[in-house]
Design a protein around this nucleic acid. Structure first.
Length: 817
DNA sequence: TTAGGGTTAG
């Protein structure tokens, strides 16, 4: 518009600033001087004017000018306006302009069709093409008509119909039309049809290759996509920005760092790094590789950044567990005035979940509600369910889940995982069963990865095996994450042999399955084998990570392998540069403490660079109990109750230490402390599987149909145990009651009920497997040794820590629990 | 004057 203003005489120019809007002014000025109109329409370069139309308002002014200049029937200029309005997002002006053009040519029709597609009005674009086909005359669809319509078909279901039109008119070999067809078929998952269009093309340009490559990628055929890329290169077609931005996600998916970096070099060499799509794809790829520095380097070098760039860099830090840095980038995004979209908020939800920031997490939820995004996309709802689950607020997670207008398989997976990770295994199983009732939901890899740990947790071997059977049918068990869950399930359900044989069946290039099998060996007390497997892992060239060392250190600690544990701990730091975290320190304190080296354990706690938490003091306290060190025990319990005064299990431990050294006043003190604080114990339960039925017992259960028989069996057992020297250890009872009542309380502990039920429900001498959700009680541990001797049975108890194999009066754990 | 193929997700 400014080039036009410069043409005007200064006398009139003066009045412009006062007489606004421009449209009115133009009308008055020019209609009074028809000669000037002619003059101006000759010298004004409309192309330049179109170029400066960057907003709807300016375009409206140009539109008015064209009308004033008597150009209303200039089909070329008005066709341009149709496109321009649509590009600027004003479809109603676009279609109004279209309707006013009397002598529409094919350019006009094509522009309107494309305008509808650009603004997401797919059905209207189809209707317009039908209208065009139905009107008699010489205006017929051409090469240009179909690519936008085919794009519309991606969102509709008329793809086949349009392909027929295309074939009928003989347009299928046009490179633009063919690329759209390939894209369309790929989007509908019909890769074969897409490929046929591709191979039938007599001439292919880079766009054709791009369509085929991205089509393959979007259907999960990543390796094939790279194959097509190689063929493209072999035919001498050069990659452009579109090729690069389609292929980089493939490198990320295949974890192919070498190809990814080579393509990055190509980008630099060919000057493609000014393309926003390319840079965004690079950021995402480096993020998936975990190479945050490279991702940030690309981001920093970008001259133009769009919403996707910011989302990508925020997600990069969020997904690599650096929520604080991610948040800084979010602030940077706000600083430059880029408005967040729902994907930004998906990252934010995860960030505040990771940061355990409940208040801001809720604010994010409120923001989503105000924007109405929950109704728009299921992804954002799932992100909120996940956020609340991570914040430990599983009830809120459930409420959001219930309110979701649409639930997909990921909504269910997120809920199941949420329950499982908050220790609510049976709720997770209930959710999984409810999901099974929704016919529209097909479980996927994520479902198995969420439900199997819940089964492991409660020891539901049968159900776990049922899933294994289902997965064998479609080879889904070969997926390394699913297989790892199965290994873990077999390990935790006492089937170590099955865990081992599955381990040797599956691909094991990453540390993930190794960590699971090492951990399984550990909880079964097979420390030596765990170490051997660790050595095998290294000789197979698999890189150990911090989880490997947690599995390994805990295996050493369960088996009392002090020197070996120390060796691993040193190697982890020196050779792998892994800084020990609280879990590693916890294992080491356990290891030294259990072996009786309390001084070393205490030294480690005192010299840790991180603040000791309850698990560390708990480990030290447990060691003090085993070795009867009341002095250090008192100190540790003091510290322990400062960091966690809510866990009643610790009070039991402390009371037990005092009792063992005869400090009865200490026992009384701890009991009253527990009572005054109103601590309620996490309900302990034990389960035993009889046939296919899982029987669950809570302490003091009186409601089981075979209750009378169970207690009768227990009375018989107690009498025999006492004759063999069993003395009940009342220090495991926190209630302040008489001794005979304490004995009664111990006798009705859940593990003992489960064992008694196992004895009366299975043939003599057959093994009994028990699961307990907490650590097995010390007195029950002692009692079970006697029971295994009296009944000549193997009794296998899995508690929250490890397996205890009781046989002939001895426990595999060496009385450490 | 009109057109294709591309980057971010729970």
């Amino acid at each position: 518009m400014f080039s036009l203003l410069r043409l005007l005489p200064p006398r009139n120019f003066k009045s412009i600033s006062k007489v606004s809007p421009l449209q009115r002014w133009i009308h008055r000025t020019f209609s009074s001087a028809a000669a000037s109109l002619q003059h101006i329409s000759h010298i004004v370069d409309f192309k330049v004017l179109f170029h400066s139309c960057t907003t709807v308002n300016v375009t409206k002014q140009l539109h008015a000018l064209l009308l004033v200049l008597g150009k209303a029937q200039d089909v070329v200029l008005f066709t341009k306006l149709v496109t321009l309005y649509a590009t600027l997002g004003d479809l109603s002006l676009s279609s109004a302009t279209f309707k006013h053009i009397r002598r529409k040519n094919i350019y006009t029709w094509n522009s309107m069709v494309a305008a509808y597609v650009r603004c997401g009005r797919y059905r209207d674009s189809m209707d317009l093409v039908s209208e065009l086909l139905s009107i008699p005359g010489t205006v017929r669809p051409d090469f240009y008509t179909f690519p936008p319509v085919l794009k519309a078909c991606v969102h509709l279901v008329d793809g086949e119909k349009i392909h027929c039109w295309v074939l009928k008119m003989g347009f299928e070999h046009d490179v633009y039309v063919a690329a759209s067809l390939i894209h369309l078929y790929s989007r509908f998952g019909v890769v074969g049809a897409a490929h046929k269009v591709f191979v039938d093309m007599p001439v292919r340009d880079v766009g054709s290759w791009n369509a085929m490559i991205s089509g393959l990628c979007q259907n999960g055929n990543a390796a094939e996509a790279l194959g097509v890329l190689d063929r493209m290169k072999a035919e001498g077609v050069k990659m452009d920005t579109v090729t690069v931005s389609s292929v980089l996600p493939v490198c990320a998916q295949l974890n192919d760092v070498v190809s990814g970096v080579l393509i990055h070099l190509y980008v630099i060499k060919h000057g493609l790094e000014s393309d926003v799509f390319v840079c965004n794809a690079l950021i995402n790829m480096y993020s998936k590789f975990g190479r945050l520095q490279d991702a940030q380097m690309v981001f920093d070098a970008m001259k133009v950044r769009d919403l996707v760039s910011w989302n990508s860099v925020i997600a990069a830090y969020e997904q690599n567990n650096e929520p604080v840095t991610a948040l800084e980038f979010f602030k940077g995004m706000q600083f430059v005035g880029t408005q967040p979209d729902f994907l930004t908020v998906v990252s934010l939800a995860s960030i505040f979940g990771q940061l355990s920031d409940w208040l801001i997490g809720r604010a994010v939820h409120g923001f989503v509600i105000r924007r109405g995004w929950l109704e728009e996309d299921v992804v954002i709802g799932n992100a909120l369910v996940n956020m609340y689950a991570k914040l430990g607020s599983i009830d809120s997670a459930h409420v959001v889940f219930e309110q979701l207008p649409v639930r997909d398989v990921i909504s269910w997976n997120t809920l199941i995982t949420g329950y499982a990770q908050n220790g609510l295994a049976s709720e997770a199983i209930d959710a999984y069963n409810m999901m099974g009732e929704c016919r529209t939901i097909v479980p996927n890899q994520g479902t198995w990865v969420s439900i199997l740990p819940a089964y492991s947790h409660v020891g539901a071997l049968q159900q776990g095996m049922k899933i294994h059977g289902r997965l064998i049918k479609n080879c889904a068990y070969l997926d390394v994450f699913v297989a790892t869950c199965l290994i873990d399930m077999y390990g935790k359900c006492g089937r170590l042999e099955d865990a081992m044989s599955l381990f040797y069946e599956i691909p094991r290039e990453t540390s993930v399955p190794w960590n699971a099998i090492i951990s399984s060996l550990g909880i079964h007390g097979h420390g030596e084998e765990a170490l051997q497997l660790f050595k095998d892992m290294l000789s197979e060239g698999v890189k150990a990570d911090h989880i490997t060392f947690i599995s390994l250190l805990s295996a050493c600690s369960h088996s009392g392998l002090v020197d070996e544990g120390q060796w691993c701990f040193d190697m982890m730091q020196k050779e792998y540069g892994i800084k020990p975290n609280l879990k590693h320190y916890g294992c080491m304190v356990d290891l030294f403490g259990r072996a009786g080296n309390l001084e070393k354990a205490y030294d480690l706690v005192s010299n840790m660079p991180v603040q000791a938490d309850a698990s560390i003091w708990g480990a030290l306290l447990a060691a003090c109990r085993i070795h009867g060190n009341a002095e250090l025990g008192t100190f540790a319990s003091d510290r322990l109750l400062k960091v966690d005064s809510e866990n009643v299990g610790y009070y039991v431990l402390i009371s037990n230490i005092y009792a063992n050294v005869g400090k009865w006043e200490g026992v009384v003190k701890v009991r009253s402390l527990a009572r005054d604080r109103g601590l309620r114990k996490t309900p302990g339960w034990s389960s035993v599987v009889i046939g296919n039925v899982v029987e669950v017992f809570y302490a003091g259960n009186q409601t089981h149909p075979q209750c009378t028989e169970i207690y009768k069996e227990l009375r018989v057992l107690i009498a025999k145990m006492k004759s063999l020297g069993y003395v009940p250890d009342y220090s495991f009872v926190l209630q302040d009651v008489e001794d005979d009542e304490k004995e009664q309380i111990l006798t009705s502990h859940s593990e003992r009920l489960a064992i008694a039920f196992g004895i009366i429900s299975t043939p003599p001498k057959s093994p009994i497997r028990i699961f307990k959700n907490l650590r097995v009680c010390g007195d029950c541990h002692n009692a079970t040794k006697y029971i295994s001797k009296i009944t000549e049975r193997n009794i296998i108890v899995r508690d929250s820590n490890r397996f205890h194999h009781f046989k002939d009066g001895i426990c595999s754990c060496g009385d450490y629990w």
